[in-house]
Amino acid sequence: MTRVLLVTSSILADQGQSTQLARHFERLARQRDDIEITHRDVVADDLPHLGLDELSSWQVADAERSEAQRELATRSDERLAELEAHDVLVLAVPLYNLGIPSQLKAWFDRILRAGKSFRYTENGPVGLLEGKRAIVLGARGGQYAGSALDTQTPHLRHMLGLIGINEVETVFAEGLSMGDEHKEAALTTAHAEIEALIARL
């Protein structure tokens, strides 16, 4: 059984193009008996920005945490446990102002955790979640892939690599705001690439 954690991050919910890519992935994946999917919508989760009190709660041993610290630490503990329990991470990501949604960054801030998902060594950080793979489903109004303006893809790869997820595949539907013909062609290509990805899971 392949366990897939599907993370969506569009503020437009089901109307978002990245969410539509995620739904296409999910529909096809659920046709297979050997794939199990968990869906997490980080916009609906509405995690706050990471603050000092929450960060400090991670440094306190479980048995010594106050009730408030336990509640704060749970935000990270539960999301890390969820990620650890899955084999494949699928991120459905819109492009907002050349970056990832702040809601998705808030999620990453809870899973990029020293001593839990990576550790520091003399040779630099080492990821602790090896053996997993990731798929990025990106939706963009313009065309950015491969250009200097695509700061989003390297950011995602670096964050995933930090925790040991170095096998990252990408599917982009680009130019979605550049006319109906361009949009239809981009979505058709992206759907075909998603189907090929699922066949390899």
Rank of each mutant, 00 (worst) to 15 (best):
R3T: 06
L55S: 01
N123S: 09
V168M: 05
N166M: 10
K132N: 05
S10Q: 08
D109K: 04
S56C: 09
L21C: 02
R79Q: 14
A13R: 11
I165G: 00
A44S: 14
L149F: 04
D150P: 04
E169P: 01
Q59H: 04
E167D: 15
L187Y: 12
T121Y: 04
D41A: 02
I37S: 07
R113G: 01
V43H: 00
L89P: 01
G138F: 06
H39V: 12
K183F: 15
D46W: 02
A44Y: 02
G51D: 15
P101G: 10
E64N: 15
L91A: 13
A196T: 10
A61G: 11
Q152K: 02
Y144F: 15
V7P: 00
R40K: 15
V60Q: 02
T74F: 03
A63D: 14
H39D: 03
S66N: 08
R75A: 12
S66L: 12
I163K: 06
Q15P: 00
I100A: 15
A22P: 00
G146K: 09
K105P: 10
D180N: 10
R3N: 05
A13N: 12
L21S: 00
E167A: 10
L12F: 15
V168F: 06
P48H: 04
D62E: 14
A44C: 07
H155Q: 09
T8Q: 06
D53H: 04
R3V: 04
P48M: 01
S76T: 12
T188E: 14
G175S: 14
G51I: 07
T189F: 03
D41L: 01
G16P: 00
L128M: 15
D41E: 04
A85E: 08
Q143W: 07
S117D: 02
V42R: 00
L160P: 06
D45H: 00
T188A: 12
S10E: 05
S177R: 08
T2I: 08
A106V: 02
E78Y: 03
A13Q: 13
G51C: 14
R70L: 13
E26I: 01
L50C: 02
N123F: 12
Q69F: 03
L201T: 07
A114G: 07
G124D: 13
V60L: 03
G131A: 08
P94G: 08
L50M: 13
R157A: 09
S76Q: 08
Q152Y: 08
A190Q: 13
Q17R: 15
T2D: 05
D77Q: 09
F172G: 03
Q69R: 03
L156E: 01
